[in-house]
Each structure stands twice: as structure tokens, then as C-alpha cells.
């Protein structure tokens, strides 16, 4: 008969806490070197002395911040970015809502197919999808050719301006919004709607008074997500804006890579983070009001 020996001597081993620490060490190192330190360093960088040559001074001062916050260009950059991002968020919401509601009401294989169609763009590179928009919006693209075929002599320019950026980003952010809305639609019981309809409310009134309020948390989440992604997006504004649309994200890249004004790039990054913090707070507040 075989049996396990009870309580045989063991070499000294790590306790559970020791084992946990050992297992968490690698990720802690990556997190510290790749996240905590760079972020702290970024904050410090925004206070470094910037010299005209692009070199860094040795000392720390508030120059970058005072310049940035008094310069009309930077202020316009901030208000523009926030404004454009808000516009994109609203457009994304309007465009996504019908899809999400339709998805919520469809079932079976059809729903699976539609879900794949929603998620597929999420998994394709922003470069690919932006390229698609170039093909649609450029001077020789789908829209321009269609309008000319219809007899319009000079179709409006849809690219290398804000219009193109807004159209492209709206589409690119839609999957996020749809998924957020769907997650919030869980509370939308079809029986509630039926109840409202049987109580004599018109379909439009039912939507306005029952469906919309119930889906508000999903809209708030989607709104936060899209706003945050819009204000930090870079590839689409760069390619569809063609260097003629100035937003916070593109400016950060230009300052860092082209102008080599690292303190300013760092300060702008911090501003983006502040905007993030504010929108998170507003979201939390909105959620509390809805609840």
C-alpha cells in the first residue's frame, strides 16, 4: 500500500506572502520602470528650463507653464481640442444609438453576425481605417466623385480640415460607444416598454420617457470613453488633418519630435491628464445624478 508520508521534513520554503511577492516582482519592475517613473519624470520635465536650441537647461522653473497658460495659441489649442472632442462624442452617440438599440433587440445568429461587424473595426488598426476615410473623403475619393457625377462642379473639401477629422474620428470611436451602450442596455427590459405602450404612451413618447432615461448610464459611460479617446487620438487628426488641424495630441507629438521642446510637450501632456481628471469627475457626478 502506498501512502503519503505525513509531515516529512521540508526544506525551508517561502511563505504565501513570499511566493506572492516573487510572482509579482517582474510586473512590479515593468510597472515601475515603464509607468511610474516615466510619468513622474514627465511631470518633472514640464518644469525644466527649455532653451531655444532645444537643449534642456539644468534648472527648474515655471516658465513653460506660465508661457503655455498665457499663450493664446495654447489656450486656443485646449478649447479647440475640448470642443472638437465634445462634438465628436455627441456625433458618435447619435450614430451609435440606433445600432446599439437594434443589436439589443436582435437575437441568435443575426445578433452574433452584427456583433462581429461591430467588433471587427475595433481590431483593425487606426491607420487602416483612416486610410479608408482618405479613400472616401479625398479630392478623388468616393464622395467627391459621386458629387461630380451628380453634376456638382466643385465638391466641398472634406479632407485636410476639421470636417474630415470629425467624420473619421466619429466612425473610429463608434464601436467603443456601441459596446458601452450595450452594457448599459441590460436594464432595458422589453416588458417595461410594452407596459408603457399598453398604458397608452405613443412609441415616441415611450422612447423619450422610458427607453432614454433607462439607457442613460450606458450613454454616460460611452460618452466618457469617446471623449477621452477623442482628445488623445493622434493618428486620425494627423492623417486626415494633413497638418492643418491643430489639436492637443498632434501638438504634443510635434513639440516632442519636431520642435524638440520637451518641457512644453510634457506640460501639454499634463493638461491632457487634467482634462481627463475633470471628465472622470463629471462622469462620476453624472452617474450619481442618474442613479
Amino acid at each position: 500500500m502506498t501512502s503519503l508520508t505525513l509531515c516529512h521534513a521540508e526544506p525551508r520554503r517561502l511563505g504565501p506572502l513570499g511566493t506572492a511577492s516573487a510572482l509579482l516582482l517582474p510586473i512590479a519592475v515593468v510597472n515601475a520602470i515603464g509607468f511610474l517613473w516615466p510619468v513622474v519624470n514627465l511631470l518633472k520635465m514640464s518644469f525644466r528650463e527649455a532653451q531655444a536650441s532645444g537643449a534642456l537647461g539644468a534648472g527648474y522653473n515655471l516658465d513653460t507653464w506660465t508661457n503655455a497658460l498665457t499663450d493664446s495659441f495654447t489656450l486656443e489649442l485646449i478649447t479647440n481640442s475640448v470642443g472638437v472632442s465634445l462634438l465628436i462624442t455627441v456625433l458618435t452617440l447619435i450614430a451609435s444609438y440606433p445600432i446599439a438599440l437594434y443589436l439589443h433587440r436582435s437575437t441568435g445568429t443575426w445578433r452574433t453576425v452584427l456583433m462581429v461587424l461591430v467588433v471587427a473595426p475595433l481590431l483593425t488598426s487606426a491607420v487602416v481605417r483612416t486610410y479608408g476615410w482618405i479613400a472616401i473623403l479625398s479630392d478623388r475619393g468616393l464622395v467627391a466623385n459621386a458629387l461630380m457625377a451628380l453634376g456638382m462642379a466643385e465638391p466641398p473639401r472634406l479632407m485636410f480640415n476639421l470636417t474630415g477629422v470629425v467624420i473619421g474620428l466619429t466612425e473610429i470611436l463608434m464601436p467603443y460607444m456601441i459596446l458601452a451602450l450595450l452594457s448599459g442596455f441590460g436594464r432595458l427590459d422589453p416588458r417595461l416598454e410594452e407596459a408603457a405602450l399598453t398604458l397608452g404612451a405613443s412609441p415616441l413618447k415611450t422612447f423619450w420617457r422610458v427607453v432614454l432615461p433607462l439607457t442613460a448610464p450606458g450613454m454616460a459611460l460611452g460618452g466618457l470613453l469617446c471623449f477621452v479617446l477623442a482628445i488623445s487620438s493622434f493618428v486620425t487628426p494627423k492623417l486626415l488633418g494633413g497638418g492643418r488641424v491643430f489639436l492637443l495630441a498632434t501638438e504634443i507629438y510635434d513639440q516632442a519630435i519636431v520642435t524638440l521642446n520637451w518641457p512644453l510637450a510634457a506640460a501639454l501632456s499634463m493638461i491632457v491628464l487634467v482634462v481627463f481628471g475633470i471628465s472622470l469627475t463629471l462622469y462620476a457626478r453624472a452617474l450619481r445624478r442618474i442613479a
Binding site: S3, L4, T5, L6, C7, H8
Partner: peptide
């Protein structure tokens, strides 16, 4: 206690 030995704190896989 099993067979006179206190098993408190012994890992399950060593308890047979």
C-alpha cells in the same frame, strides 16, 4: 490530531 500528530498547519497534499 491524527495518530497522535498535530496536523494544524500541514498542507493538504501532505495529509494523506
Amino acid at each position: 490530531v491524527v495518530d497522535g500528530r498535530d496536523l494544524t498547519g500541514v498542507a493538504p497534499y501532505k495529509r494523506d
